[in-house]
Amino acid sequence: MEPNIIAFCCHYCAFTAADLAGTMRQQYPANIHIVRLPCTGKVDINMLLRAFVDEADGVMVAGCEVGSCHFLEGNIRAKKRVEYAKRKLEEVGINPEKLEMFHIAASEGPLFAQTARDFTDKIRRMIQQESQIEQGSEGQKKKEQIAEPVDNRKEENDRSTGAM
């Protein structure tokens, strides 16, 4: 199954770049759900965490390049909040790399498409690794469960024969 990715995009740059990517017929994964914001400075930590609570596998925040924010410093503030939200994710045991901030100018349609493809690949790999680890630990548990009765029988035999 394709990962579910939410992209919070600034109206003045990354959202326009996403639009341009479409106009240029650049392909990027359809599982990316774009949320248009007036500026990435609008991004709140709760927005980012809520996306993960509501089953997002990855979240990207895409704002203007440093120095070209329409509201001067919105993208710099967003970057700080993304860093803070990463720490909050790490505290609850979620890989903080599932949340990333990107800077994409309005004219960079191909870069938006490439970023979306790369981020989707990264999240897909992370999900695969996590499920492998989970399967591995479940397999280990099953092995231990199977091994337990054998050990019990051995103990019982030991007791009946008087061996300690």
Binding site: D44, I45, L89, I94
Partner: peptide
């Protein structure tokens, strides 16, 4: 209110994990 929201979301995520 904002910190309540952040902590609530963190606890929901940790419980889900």
């Amino acid at each position: 209110e904002r910190e309540v929201g952040i902590l609530a979301n963190q606890i929901r995520l940790a419980a889900k994990e």
